[in-house]
């Protein structure tokens, strides 16, 4: 069980939305984790790399800031095997590359623009994730 945290989660969502609006309004970029990461590991040009590197560094500093503010470490509870992490990671990487985005790019920024591609992508990955957990927890693992 994990605790239902509607207000904290809503606040987290508002921060994600704020970051998305700032990145578009200031730099004209979609706040999509997939696109930012892909351009960081495969830079298209020298000038296109710095903003990605600093943005990723900012993301990775969040657990430290959380610790400074709250005195607690960020909870990362992993209820699955290392094999599931490796296989899941490989499939996620290939999937978001072909699908052209993930939860942040399609699910937030794309749907915010009412992009039909993003709406389809989000419905598909959410439905498949629910089905996958149903199978691993209630069919195979149940």
């Amino acid at each position: 069980m994990t605790e239902f945290t509607p207000w904290m989660s809503l606040f987290g969502g508002v921060l994600i939305g704020t970051a998305s609006v700032l990145l578009m309004g200031l730099f004209g970029r979609v706040m999509g984790a997939t696109g930012i990461l892909a351009g960081f590991v495969m830079p298209q040009s020298a000038g296109d790399w710095g903003w990605r590197a600093t943005l990723l560094a900012g993301m990775m500093t969040a657990p430290a800031l959380y610790w400074i503010i709250s005195g607690d470490a960020v909870a990362v509870d992993v209820p699955v095997s290392t094999a599931a992490m490796i296989i899941g990671g490989l499939i996620v990487g290939a999937g978001v590359t072909y699908g052209g985005g993930c939860t942040s790019g399609h699910g937030v920024c794309g749907i915010a623009r009412l992009s039909p591609r993003s709406i389809v992508a989000t419905v598909v990955f959410m439905a498949v994730a629910v089905a996958t957990v149903y199978v691993t927890r209630h069919v195979v693992g149940g």
């Binding site: 599931a84 296989i87 290939a94 072909y98 052209g100 993930c102 959410m126 994730a129």
Partner: peptide, 24 residues
Amino acid sequence: LVAGSAAFGLGWGLAGFCPGGALP
């Protein structure tokens, strides 16, 4: 788009991380 998103959903359901969740 559809096949890639389906694969992403499968991996997300297996591992519990999406790219935006894992990077921070």
